[in-house]
Design a protein around this nucleic acid. Sequence first.
DNA 1: TGTTATT
Length: 472
Amino acid sequence: MYIKMATLANGQADNASLSTNGLGGSPGSAGHMNGLSHSPGNPSTIPMKDHDAIKLFIGQIPRNLDEKDLKPLFEEFGKIYELTVLKDRFTGMHKGCAFLTYCERESALKAQSALHEQKTLPGMNRPIQVKPADSESRGEDRKLFVGMLNKQQSEDDVRRLFEAFGNIEECTILRGPDGNSKGCAFVKYSSHAEAQAAINALHGSQTMPGASSSLVVKFADTDKERTMRRMQQMAGQMGMFNPMAIPFGAYGAYAQALMQQQAALMASVAQGGYLNPMAAFAAAQMQQMAALNMNGLAAAPMTPTSGNTPPGITAPAVPSIPSPIGVNGFTGLPPQANGQPAAEAVFANGIHPYPAAYPAAYGQISQAFPQPPPMIPQQQREGPEGCNLFIYHLPQEFGDAELMQMFLPFGNVISSKVFVDRATNQSKCFGFVSFDNPASAQTAIQAMNGFQIGMKRLKVQLKRPKDANRPY
DNA sequence: TGTTATT
């Protein structure tokens, strides 16, 4: 349809551009009259555009070209109603693209077919883009996001994969600045039904060579979703991702509520005889401490905040978990900590290492929680070199949160990630923890490497840098 | 040994 219309429009272009100003292309007649019977004799000096005019997006424009430079290039396809180079809102910097509206729909179609991907402007390494602006598509319900592509696959490859399900209006591989595929693409069909058919047939249908999971085919993010995504990324960069790490910040009350909640959970679970992962861990920790005759001081990574605070309880000690978790009758407390008010075990980083250390948690947990701020999912973040740990032989039950809990006592954990098998959702029993400084990482290694949990001993090492290929 | 990426 597009091609046919464009062809017809081409034939009419001279005539049309001379004789009409949009009146011939009124909505009612546009469907079948396009290009065939522009009624002549309605000239106007006021710039007017067709009601069905198309706003075009023009991409890959050299940044040294402004509106007046671009005008001649596009004018040859028809009378221009509006041409605006996109500029950065704050810096005013040329963004390398523009919006262009012709007075007539036909001019836009003609320009698109003549120019889109057809030539490359000086200084650009990719061809010019001329296509209807996203704002024109009205609802992104025909556009698909395609993920888990092979990075070698081209636009044509993707087209071939999708063409059986409908008319593809647009197909774009997402690429980084270097031009390398990001392994995903957008495919836009003429209709929602076509897009849906492609999803039904292709999503999960195959796994591309080199991809870590099967093909993803879904509707592309809406503007709103895209905005949300951006906000999340920003929040992550600003370090707002983890309420536990900022107990005295804006979310202090919420963090504390979380801790109380968790403490309550642990208490009730312990009473029920089932050990949640943290309780199990705590039990194992105590057992180990007993075996090594640690008194909680030797490896203490952090110092008390004040002189009258009891000397550092070694990180993972959990003084006040109610105690069916004791192993072999060992109830848990190093001598120095035994009998001390647990709530005073505040560490240098301001974090109570374990929520169970809050006496307040027992008995008055049911008070209303403050309105929680929206929980922003933690994004994986690598710390600087020397701050990232690789941890192997984690208990099967450990998730990101438990992993973080386990390492929080050694410093500021900026990220924790347990790898999960995508098919089964089972932990692969290894993960990463990142601190914001190397000393915390070293302390954590000293304290936790070889640490026994159940039948296994944790392996805690610096994460292998990306370039180093050899295993340990 | 940081997996999935949204013009």
